[in-house]
Design a protein around this nucleic acid. Sequence first.
DNA 1: AACTCACATCATGCCACAGTAAGCA
DNA 2: AGTGCTTACTGTGGCATGATGTGAG
Length: 413
Amino acid sequence: MGRMCDFCGEQRSMVYCRSDAACLCLSCDRNVHSANALSRRHSRTLLCEKCNSQPAFVRCVEERISLCQNCDWMEHDGSSLVSTHKRLNVNCYSGCPSAAELSTIWSFILDFPSAGDSTCEQGFGSMSISDNSMKNCQGRPENNNGQDAPVVVEVNDVTDMDKLGVWKGSSSMRQLNIKSHNVGQPAVSATATSPKICCARTKVPRIGEDDCFYEDFDMDEVDLNIENYEEFFGVALNDPEQLFEDGIDSLFGMKDMFGVDSNYQSACVAEGSSNGLVHGLQPACSNPASADSIMSSKTEPKFCLTRQAHSSLSFSGLTGESSAGDYQDCGASSMLLMGEPPWCSPCPESHASTTRSSAVMRYKEKKKARKFEKRVRYASRKARADVRRRVKGRFIKAGDAYDYDPLSQTRSY
DNA sequence: AACTCACATCATGCCACAGTAAGCA
DNA sequence: AGTGCTTACTGTGGCATGATGTGAG
């Protein structure tokens, strides 16, 4: 018996909404996400049928089960016979697709239950699958290497790819590639559009900050503003009290500059926090020398010292007895599996200053554009707030005159 | 260099009300 | 221990407002 719908509590949940962090049955999914234009944009996907708590990542054809990244990893570990199972990407969707459209998105589910009427409430109408509202949740290009991926995401150009979050190189993708699973390789070369720092041979895609897989990660819970990149690039730091935390920030600042997903940063810091990593000056990483590495990187700022500290952090996120699920949304695993971090390749000295300035510039741009989305803890409250009428932004009593109605954008006076 | 001003950005509080937790019988 | 009721608290989004930061003169 699967998990019950978080909204009605009566039907078995089938889809997972990341924005709401909620598991919903198809009926409630339609009801909740037809409430207004914003909720219609929520990206949803199948619910993992094994853990019933995470968004599905792939569909195992042999086992006829949808799995999240963690469960997929455990089920199809390379050492096991089932690692050869054929698996299909599970796509995200938004809007209010009909049962038929959902069947198209997830064509591998033959017994797809009907969700009832296909038309959205409030006359919104269903959103066409072809309108780019549907996207690959893992940011993977579809249907490559002859894999019969359920839906082909049409991308007009590179810009559109970025907008869609298509092939932004999520950790999940890289893990599958590395493990040589049956899930396809990217048809679109990431190197064509992905900026890299003096490591042209690296074929690692840039990790997108807007990767939908992480979109509801709560950045508010951990203050991760990176303010110390200047120091990292050459200004000595004299305050040992601040040294370690700034080192963490700077590390992540480096990561951020080179395009690594900010959620990796937050996830790893969160993980570190749970281990007393951030708040105490405990050794940040699995080996005691790691913190010292960070320290030394501060007093003698060089790129390769950053790498040293980085790899230590990666290990801290992956070693030990922790469940792999703890890192499911953390790019750390892939970062580790990729081996050499892309920015650590030896660079000709003549390019160093150019590289650094461009990295700083890109980092600043990215920092400027960064979004700190908050996590919605109670989807039902959000749903109500989304449709509640207001006067100057304030909620009003039911029946009172209003100046803003999220549903109709009209005024009562 | 110090100051003022204008503008931009950020943080906070407010509102109604359903849901939740705690306390009590 | 379990049940039912009451009460207090929480969280949700858009807007207004004050605080803060920044650059020009």
